[in-house]
Amino acid sequence: MGPADSWYTNYKARLFAIACHFGYTTEEAEDIVHQFFLDLLQKNLSDAIKNPEAYLVTAFKRRLIDLHRAGKRKENVLDIENFYLPSAQDIIEQLETDEVLTNRIAEAYKKLPARYRQVIYMKYYQGYSTEKIVSLTGFTHQTVYNNLSKGIQHLRQHLKKERLLTKLAHFIFLPFI
């Protein structure tokens, strides 16, 4: 029994999806993932791996690059190398350290109409289920659902627009600095 067992249960789907993303068929992808975990079991894994999700994704990308080099090619090596899929822990660490990012989310949230903010606050800050929000607010299930869904949709739009503007700003100003 090693950590690899629980890793297999928790992350095999993710690695499988990554292989599919790079053009392998589902059968091929399944084989690659199985072989990858079999090889992992042979290894003396360090107990100090604190972020197994990130570790596995990186190791798996290397496996895909090796396969590519061995001639069973699918996709470009650079594409695989540049494919960045942050683990949940990476995301949280980024949120913790990157003030700008948190502020961007906060700005987008503040732009939402109050009816969207209310349900989003209840779901993500207070951790209430949709049913619970229905019983607390007295709105119908459909209303709560719509407000949540529209709220997220607007939030995404705000964030996208902003990302675009930032990129644009970099594009315009960078050459002059």
Partner: peptide, 13 residues
């Protein structure tokens, strides 16, 4: 997942 984690984290912070 990024939206869920981002919102949860932001609201707490």
């Amino acid at each position: 997942r990024k939206i869920v984690l981002g919102l949860t984290f932001m609201l707490q912070k």
